[in-house]
Amino acid sequence: MSNLKLTTKNEVEMGKVVIKRKRFTLKSVSEKVIELIFASSGYLILITILSVFLFLLWEGWNALDSTGLKEFLFFEDKVTGVKSSQWNPTSNEEKYSLLPLIAGSFLTSLLATLLASLAGILTGIYLSEIAGTKTREILKPAIEMFSAIPTVALGFIMLVLVATFITDIFNPENRLNALLASVGLSIIVIPIVATLTEDALRSIPEEIRLTSLSLGASRWQTVFYTLIPAASGGISAGILLGFSRAIGETMIVLMTTGNASNLTFNIFSSVRTMTATIGAELGEVAFGTPHYYALFLIGLILFVLTFLINFTADIINRIYRGRNKF
């Protein structure tokens, strides 16, 4: 009986093998093709990023060739020798100082990241440690929806409603100012910080929480003295990614900063960011002029900046993830 069973089983298996073999040839071809499609779309992204970088590098290099590094810092008046840092490429004497633009970008996005970090980290802690499952299920998608708001709509709301509100409270130098832009930017940064904070907290093994609680720490003490230090890598990665999102954002700053190329750190004054400059001027700049290349240099600076920030965030994230493992 058992012998017979064995043979039939073998036969069946052999039959399967035969069938499998037939399938194998057909399958292997289609599988190879599909694999190739997947791989090529993966590599296509890499190639795209590389070629974008090379293109920016090439055009940005032309900028240094046609205008010179010194002029991207200061404009020196030929008669009086007075140095000024202004961005005014359509002036009779073109002024290409990038300092006000870089300062403007950093002022708005640093302030935005600061505002968003306060709100985002608290939200992340609430979602991960305090909120019940149901609350989280409603709240989390709602917060993620924040980043789905079209930035042009957000800019419009800032312009029409929030600008009046801020003017009434602070009576700023300009109605459209860096603070207004920062508030707008913080709305798109909050979801990034909040989600990454929550992820970082949730990735902490339950043992750490339980150990802290069993040592007599209250829930608050556990959150602030145990969990936040343990999650600090993920949280700071979130803040960095939020910052890079803020510095790359165009529409909100274009609509709300007022775009005056002031070299200032006054948050109540109008500023001009790098992204807004490209957004406003690239449309009609004559091809191949120093102005055109200067805009590409700004693009290159932005690219390198966000790349470095994202890269750092990634490294921090990896280091801390490794550390929390048992």
Partner: peptide, 12 residues
Amino acid sequence: GNDFASFSLHLQ
């Protein structure tokens, strides 16, 4: 033909 004030706001 001269420049606008550097602190003038530029709108779209």
